[in-house]
């Protein structure tokens, strides 16, 4: 599934024009990205949470040449699925 599939779905279910539905999807993504960019986590109940974590600098090694180099401190986005969703998937996995 790609973005266009979600746009189509919103278009049909909400009765919006293609442009309007497309704008809804683009802005949902933009708002989430901006929040994470500011270091603010995003919590969607029933779905999950995105958090920004700071990682410390550490020594890395090129596995081929064994050269050591420093991996710079960085910020990464991590997604934690909600317990509700995890339980739904767990049930599905054990059905049949």
């Amino acid at each position: 599934m790609v973005k266009a599939d979600i746009v189509r779905s919103i278009e049909l279910q909400m009765g919006l024009s293609h442009e309007e539905a497309s704008q809804q999807v683009e802005q949902i993504l933009e708002i989430i990205k901006n929040s994470l960019e500011n270091g603010d986590s995003v919590l969607i109940s029933g779905f999950g949470q995105w958090k920004v974590r700071s990682k410390k600098a550490r020594v890395g090694r090129n596995p081929k040449t064994k050269d050591e180099y420093e991996i710079s401190p960085r910020k990464v986005v991590t997604f934690y699925p909600s317990n509700v969703w995890r339980n739904e998937l767990q049930k599905q996995a054990n059905k049949g």
Binding site: K33, E37, V76, V77, P81
Partner: peptide, 17 residues
């Protein structure tokens, strides 16, 4: 069990960092 995973895309990774 089945667990969902998310991998950040290039634009998001760069923006956050």
């Amino acid at each position: 069990k089945n667990l969902p995973f998310f991998r950040a895309g290039k634009d998001l990774r760069e923006k956050v960092n």
